[in-house]
Amino acid sequence: MQGTAMKTGEKSKKNTEISKVKCWEVFRCKEKDCPAYKSKNPRCWLFTGTHCREEIQGQFIEKIEMCFDCNVFKKNIDTLGMEKTCLLVNTQFKEFTRMVRERDRELEGLGMDLSISLSEVFEALKKIAKGDPAVRIDETSRVELIRQLKHMVNLTAENIGEMVDQSHDIAIGLAEHFDLLHRVSKGELQARATGGSNIELLEALKNVSNTMIENIDKEIKEHQRTEASLREMKALDASILSAIPNAVMGLRDRTIIFANESVRHVFGWSAEELIGKSTRVLYRSDEDYKEIGKCLYPILAVERTHSMEFPCRRKDGKDILCMLTTAVIGERVTNKGIVVVYEDITERRDV
């Protein structure tokens, strides 16, 4: 039975691949540098850097709206294509998540450095305002603008003797900047240093402070946009799963960890009912459950994907025949982590 199922799956896969259209033929494309040009893989949307519409495109996530409107995508999308698309979205989603986490760590370190450095600057400015020429602060910092600010504070201390006559204006100016930096440390990122001064140091300090605040504000807004994009990608992942007409499940140690809404149509179970259950509930008997495990996992230890027919059972007790298309989660089968697409082919078999 195992050999028959494998041959049937391979024959079905070959016939399906032959029926696919080629994007370079449909659009009479002459972009020979395009990675999809004359490729044996007809699923051109999976390639990064395709030359669609006379422009070099990015990853699938970046060109997804254009792909959804493309006739080649609509004609070539099938169960295997949906599976590969989901895996690609999952991979790019993980990479995006990793980038967000790295940015979070960078911002956390930047915030700590900024807090400590501003505290040092505040204390130094207080001493300078009192006329202490011996004050010095360490100029090292990961933030270039902070290094410049510290350097200017040290220059101020070095030249304090020359500024005795201007001490009143400097004290007022430094107090204003102290108040500005204090407001920024409280989250008031729209605050800016205003007004002019005849003292070069205060003008430079104003410009440096405003530039520093603008850059911090820009970093925070970029982080917020990244978080919004991450939420959109999660919603997109859920939308793709919902759009697939066949039952799609993620398994870990043969336990269902996620499922799309189409499991209700194929098996009669809701996604909420299946998550956390063993896949035993999908098969007719313990013997079938053991047989599919012995047949499938050794193959997936060698191949990333595999298709085969196997009898299943719905929640209402009705027996059905399904085409199982499976793929390994990640580079290898770890903890038996796979994605399985169940297509009910009972009526097709009967015909």
Rank of each mutant, 00 (worst) to 15 (best):
R314E: 00
E291N: 12
K318M: 05
D33V: 06
L87T: 03
N15K: 11
I216R: 08
S197A: 08
H151T: 13
T97W: 02
K40W: 10
V328I: 14
I220L: 06
F178R: 09
A238Q: 09
S19D: 08
I64R: 14
D179K: 10
T97Q: 15
G58R: 00
A193H: 13
L202Y: 14
L80G: 07
D217N: 11
E188F: 08
Q190P: 01
I18M: 11
K126L: 12
C312P: 04
V339F: 14
I18H: 15
L230I: 01
K38A: 13
E200P: 05
H182C: 06
R280Y: 10
V333W: 03
I345H: 04
Q2F: 12
T255M: 13
R280D: 03
T48G: 02
K277F: 04
D165E: 14
G195K: 04
R101K: 14
H151M: 14
I220Y: 09
A171D: 12
L230T: 01
F60D: 04
N41M: 06
H223N: 13
P245A: 04
D286K: 03
I244W: 00
S239Q: 08
M99Y: 13
K218E: 07
S239E: 06
A259N: 03
A191V: 07
D286N: 08
A301N: 08
G58Y: 01
C34T: 04
F60R: 02
N71W: 03
C312L: 00
R284G: 09
K315G: 05
M6P: 03
E261L: 02
D169F: 09
F96H: 13
S209Q: 02
S115M: 00
R264I: 00
L180E: 01
N41D: 15
G337R: 12
G293A: 13
E222V: 05
S262D: 00
W45E: 10
P42A: 14
I345L: 07
D344W: 08
V72D: 09
L46N: 06
T91E: 15
A36C: 05
G9S: 06
K150E: 08
K221E: 12
R28L: 08
L181M: 14
R98W: 04
E200S: 10
E10N: 09
Y297M: 12
H223L: 05
D33G: 13
K14H: 14
L80P: 01
R28Q: 11
C29G: 09
E55R: 15
R192H: 10
N207Y: 11
I213D: 04
N207K: 13
D217H: 11
K294R: 11
V208A: 12
K206F: 12
L80M: 09
R98G: 10
T91G: 12
V248W: 01
D217C: 09
L180N: 07
V248E: 00
E54I: 05
S262F: 05
R231E: 13
K315Y: 01
G81F: 04
K13R: 11
S262V: 01
V143A: 08
T255D: 02
N207D: 15
K206T: 12
E31H: 15
K277D: 03
I299D: 04
T211F: 03
N260H: 06
